[in-house]
């Protein structure tokens, strides 16, 4: 994907929104602009409407948990332009003490379900979202699975060396008792 992230856009954003842009990351030909969360709607509208940019398509919206780094959550937005065939990535850092981000559904209705998924998996709430509910987990599930302090929840695999210990812990042992030793 080289050459599809024009670097001049980061400077244009810095000029027009000097308080919003915190940092610009360049890695493997990708440009990421880290912005302040209150400026999201304005910057997204600016990116969509300005000539020469015309980012009219939301390509990706996801969340990443950077625990134990603070601020903990990073929400990434990747916009694409059909007119000019280029991409740009915005990033918002959110702390776990105040995990609220303005919702992008007023500008891009296609952000509806992805924001619900970020809420479900990380616990970051989106203000102004028409339907903030869990989407992938059952509706009465507690916890946010993709957080780093949420356990994977795996069952220990039963081999001959640990089968007795596992069976002793189970509420209802299996119907055929395991054949250990020589029988």
């Amino acid at each position: 994907m080289s050459g599809y992230y024009p670097p001049e856009f980061a400077d244009i954003l810095r000029e027009n929104f000097p308080d919003a842009v915190q940092e610009v990351i360049e890695f493997r030909d990708q440009i990421t602009v880290v912005i302040d969360r209150d400026w999201l709607i304005e910057i997204a509208t600016f990116l969509r409407d300005t000539e020469g940019m015309k980012f009219n398509y939301l390509s990706e919206l996801n969340g990443v948990d950077y625990w134990p780094q603070a601020p903990r959550f990073g929400i990434n937005y990747i916009f694409y332009s059909f007119v000019h065939n280029h991409l740009i990535q915005l990033k918002i850092f959110v702390d776990e003490t105040d995990p609220v981000v303005p919702s992008l559904t007023s500008v891009f209705p296609g952000a509806n379900w992805p924001e619900r998924e970020v809420y479900d998996m990380f616990g970051v709430r989106f203000e102004g979202h028409p339907d903030m509910r869990r989407i992938l987990m059952p509706y009465d599930w507690t916890g946010h699975p993709l957080r780093k302090d949420f356990p994977l929840g795996y069952e220990e695999v039963q081999y001959t060396f640990n089968i007795d210990r596992i069976e002793a812990n189970k509420p209802t042992p299996s119907a055929d008792p395991p054949q250990t030793g020589t029988e």
Partner: peptide, 12 residues
Amino acid sequence: TGGVFNNYAILQ
């Protein structure tokens, strides 16, 4: 048996 997936979401 739960297959490849040994995690919170899949019945083993």
